[in-house]
Amino acid sequence: MSKTMKGVTLFADWDPKPDFKLGPKDIEGKQTYLGSKVWRNPRIEIVEHPVPEPGPDEVLIEVKACGICGSDVHMAQPDEEGYILYPGLTGFPCILGHEFSGVVVKAGERAFDKRTNKPFKGGEIVCAEEMMWCGQCKPCADGYPNHCERLNEVGFNVNGAFAKYIVMPAKLVWNLESLKNRYSGDDIFLAGSLVEPTSVAYNAVIERGGGIRPGDNVVVCGGGPVGIAACAILKRSGAARVILSEPQPERAELGKKMGADYVINPLKEDFVQRVLELTDGMGANLYLEATGLPTVVYPQIEKVIWEGRTINSTVVVVARADAKMPVTGEVLQVRRARIIGAQGHSGHGTFYRVIECMADGMDMTPMITKKITLDEVPQNIINLRTDRKECKITCVM
């Protein structure tokens, strides 16, 4: 094994905006929980890194597939002033990539496989969570590790998976053995790389949104990977009508393939009237905001809630954005509606349940619309700023 490896690495300048204040978990010049207020002039380079060594509780994984996430795009995308668009936890320089699968190469003596309750031996096909929780703080103790007080994130402030190898804590690694009945060859790695984004959707609509009853109507705003994964999950959960709002034709068609019953083009149709027409005036029980454009999308959702006949609707906000939502309290009060925030995926067995859904036939691999090499990752991250024809671009190694 070589001692070094290439990694797709994001660099940026620490240049805080005047209103930024260093928080208790921020590290001057290195890390912040408010990325878009600090990091400027992002640039992606492929540079050499040492191959990491696993500690006693860790595993070394040879990466086989890693998808590009919208977060990768927004961390590397500057606004008019040069500041990155991503608003959350970031620490640069950092190897990007967190939606991955691969093969265990080496494991520490205390690295156990959750599926077998035995030590990892090497050769296991796995994927991993990207939210690195401590297990000791109050949110972790309460069962909310995705809100860990000592949170680190793979590919955000800890080196990620756009590289040959990655070291992960064993507690975050999930065996993909059950997928072998459905997938063979490289397909199992492609499926495994989609567990993380599908788990984000699962956490949003099932864990945070509270799920649905069979026969409920749902509206998904945004046909990116998380929105399309939500269509699949909600249809599998028994939704009567899954309505996807998405203007890009390629993503709209993919949404239909993955579970959407109807697609609305909000640039050509009246979103409010169309939702009410499709639901016989009822509106929806659950709305997912997965566009990152809350100032545009939320007022339309709110109008459907106000004019529809469904009481007790839930709006789940999963897309990350700096913008504030224009909320009318009267609508929430009179219609007994609520707005829920959803972050990440960890906790409540989300990864396990998604893997088992995949093993039972919920095939997410059609979301992968383009495969690339490691050397092609930087340019494709840049292209995704404006090109929405692709759904999930995946690096295959």
Score class of each variant (00 low, 15 high):
Met5Phe: 01
Gly7Leu: 05
Val8His: 05
Ala12Leu: 02
Leu22Tyr: 04
Pro24Asp: 10
Tyr33Thr: 15
Leu34Val: 12
Leu34Arg: 11
Gly35His: 06
Val38Leu: 09
Val38Cys: 07
Val38Asn: 10
Asn41Arg: 10
Val51Cys: 08
Pro52Gln: 09
Pro54Met: 15
Pro54Cys: 15
Glu58Ala: 11
Val59Gln: 03
Leu60Gln: 01
Glu62Lys: 11
Val63Cys: 00
Cys66Leu: 01
Gly70Cys: 06
Met75Tyr: 02
Ala76Pro: 01
Ala76Tyr: 06
Phe92Ile: 11
Ile95His: 12
Ile95Lys: 10
Gly97Cys: 10
His98Pro: 05
Phe100Asn: 08
Lys106His: 14
Ala107Phe: 04
Phe112Tyr: 14
Phe120Trp: 05
Glu130Ser: 13
Met131Leu: 13
Met132Val: 11
Cys134Val: 00
Gly135Leu: 11
Lys138Pro: 13
Cys140His: 13
Cys140Phe: 14
Ala141Glu: 14
Ala141Trp: 08
Tyr144Glu: 11
Asn146Val: 03
His147Glu: 07
Cys148Ser: 11
Arg150Cys: 13
Leu151His: 12
Asn157Glu: 06
Val158Asp: 10
Asn159Glu: 05
Phe162Glu: 14
Ala163Gln: 15
Ile166Asp: 06
Val167Tyr: 09
Ala170Tyr: 01
Asn175Val: 07
Asn175His: 00
Ser178Pro: 10
Asp186Tyr: 06
Asp186Thr: 03
Ile188Lys: 03
Val195His: 03
Ser199Ile: 09
Val200Glu: 06
Ala201Glu: 01
Ala204Asp: 05
Gly215Val: 07
Cys221Gly: 00
Gly227Arg: 06
Gly227Tyr: 09
Gly238Cys: 06
Ala239Asn: 09
Val242Thr: 01
Glu246Gly: 02
Ala260Tyr: 07
Ile264Cys: 01
Pro266His: 03
Arg274Trp: 14
Leu276Cys: 04
Thr279Met: 13
Gly283Thr: 09
Leu288Lys: 03
Thr291Trp: 05
Val297Thr: 03
Ile301Val: 07
Ile301Asp: 02
Thr310Trp: 06
Val315Asp: 12
Val318Ala: 11
Ala321Ser: 15
Asp322Gln: 11
Arg335Met: 08
Arg336Ile: 14
Arg336Ser: 14
Arg338Gln: 10
Ala342Cys: 14
Gln343Phe: 12
Tyr352Arg: 10
Tyr352Thr: 14
Pro366Ser: 08
Ile368Arg: 02
Thr369Gln: 00
Lys370Met: 08
Leu374Tyr: 02
Val377Thr: 00
Lys389Glu: 07
Glu390Thr: 12
Lys392Ser: 12
Met397Pro: 14
